[in-house]
Design a protein around this nucleic acid. Structure first.
Lengths: 216, 216
DNA sequence: AGGTTTCGCTACGGGTCGTAGCGTAACTGC
DNA sequence: GCAGTTACGCTACGACCCGTAGCGAAACCT
């Protein structure tokens, strides 16, 4: 597979010259910068190497190809997301939608995420890497908000763990999917009014009366 | 911009040798085939040209670059979607989710859609083309289903057209986004159980009791 | 020391891009 | 018919990028 730096330190050889750890950070930073300026298709390995002040061969010793490099460069950004307790389920949902939208608004995030997903449609290994590096890591937000809402009595407590897992996945895909789709496919901005309307829809359903969205 | 064939016939010159119309269809078909076999990054213009039995220069005379070619090649596929009346809003939503998931399951669709979206993050012209060629065309499904549900009395009739437009866009992003995200990002299949649970969520909201999903 | 691995550098074959130039084909208006 | 215009297929080209190989030097271990 790849010689990514994410391979644990236990696997690293105990002999020989150690890899310069700072180079990893420099390369990933350079990759993000190059993505912003050039986009996916015009990003070249040679350019990343020179930005990071590293030989191109060093780059290939650590990552097998462009896709895996970009995944690692972007995965970190998603870890910035947190879910502060805003007192109610509705406020929590609204908050995470806005934070996620903000994250997706950064050019390196949007470009990298879609490009990697596109490549993954023909590369099962890449799919797996996306799931472990991004999807599974972010599901924690849903689990957290769900547990919090259950503690508040806003949501029924789930007994069957299998059902709970399916429901969490469903909610995750609905929230993340809506934000991604509006931002990247429909190319329309996400403001507080949209977040509010979306939250109303998710919590109360389509059959409820029209959401209290500000006119404008 | 581009010399796409979508430029109306009124703009075509009335003199000189006319373009061979069949070549367009052959090129688009070849593009889809190449996408399936090679994926986005390994698809080359030369390969498409030879598949379509057309000179590479002819290809460049009609499309400016790979992205615009791929958009035109894929936009047609989305027109296949329709929305048969299944008797209720819930059944309609469930139906369109399954049909859309089916469409996204085809390798040429998923590969092309994501790749083009990724490129569009650095190309406003491409964004506009995606909106007109795909997004706006598919919103008709939402409008259709909504009108049908209102006729049945399942949804309140909207008076303010601006509010109605915003609501339709919201619903579109939620439905399409959830399907796209689960299929392409989470890499999990969409079956009838998921469609059922999703529909329940959209119609009744998160605060309702757990959806009647078959155990398994 | 000796062994091992990384690093920077250079160089290379193979492939793709997008364009230019040519002769020819098709169609229009005089 | 004939000149004018545009599309077509073909070849060739410079520019660029990919991913790898080989080298000497550096950094760490026992």
């Amino acid at each position: 597979m790849s010689s990514s730096p994410s391979s644990g330190p236990g696997l690293s050889p105990r002999t020989g010259r150690p890899r310069r750890a700072a180079a990893d950070a420099a390369i990933l930073e350079a990759t993000r910068a190059a993505l912003v300026e050039l986009g996916w298709s015009k990003l070249t390995m040679g350019d990343v190497a020179s930005r990071a002040k590293v030989a191109k061969t060093t780059l290939y010793r650590r990552w097998a190809n462009k896709s895996e490099l970009v995944i690692d460069a972007v995965a970190l950004l998603f870890d910035e997301l947190d879910l502060p307790d805003r007192g109610s389920l509705a406020a929590d949902v609204e908050g995470v939608v806005l934070r996620f939208a903000e994250l997706l608004d950064r050019p390196e995030t949007k470009t990298a995420l879609m490009a990697v997903v596109a490549e993954s449609t023909h590369d099962p290994a890449l799919q797996a890497r996306i799931r472990t590096s991004i999807v599974d890591r972010q599901k924690r937000l849903v689990l957290e908000g769900r547990a919090r809402a259950q503690a508040r009595g806003e949501l029924p407590t789930e007994t069957d763990p299998a059902v709970a897992a399916r429901t969490s996945s469903l909610i995750f895909d609905v929230i993340a999917g809506a934000v991604v789709h509006r931002t990247l496919v429909s190319s329309e901005p996400i403001d507080e009014a949209w977040a509010h309307a979306f939250t109303h829809l998710i919590l109360n359903g389509l059959t409820a009366v029209a959401p209290p969205m500000e006119r404008g």
